[in-house]
Amino acid sequence: MNIEQIQQQVIDADQLQIVGNKSHLKFTSSPTLEMSLYSGLIGYHPEELVMTAKSGTRIKDIESILGHKGQTLPFVVHDHENATIGGAYALGSPELRDAVLGVKIIDGQGRLLNFGGQVMKNVAGYDVARLLVGSKGKLAVICEISFRVLPKAYAIHSTSSAELITPTPSAIRDYIEHGLKNVFDPNGVFV
């Protein structure tokens, strides 16, 4: 599968469920977009502490490549066996969000968009790459992710990262979350 094919699927579909390794899949009747078919490394520069991978790449495979250079991911992903980097991104965690540097996404209108980049520091434009961490596949297709890696000695791997809390619901929060869904997926393609 390539980017153009993903774009085409999004444009053609009325509704689409984005899935990684299906570990968190809740059954719906919508057609699925199998991101595990879009996998592999795009770039890795150990001296930059940066890696870019297609979202269907398994975490296990990423860790193994990093391991050869004495580096590792700065976040923990449970259910490690087949988890993909895209799946972990969609579920979200503060540590993973910290590590994200940039994303290439396809929005609900099939537009290919780049946010952030492959550098540590980038404050040009809103931080969409970190905004979409935790978006559960409901706002956009995350195709490629650039993230920071660390030398093993610096990775403080606690087995349990902070528990995610459910924000107190409020009208303004609903309004904003609904508004953001509309920005990325105005036609409600992603379910």
């Binding site: 905004l131 528990e163 924000p167």
Partner: peptide, 15 residues
């Protein structure tokens, strides 16, 4: 609006 680093969902604090 109160935004927290550890909240589930979109990264509004990062935004």
């Amino acid at each position: 609006l109160i935004l927290n680093r550890n909240e589930d969902g979109l990264g509004l604090l990062a935004l």
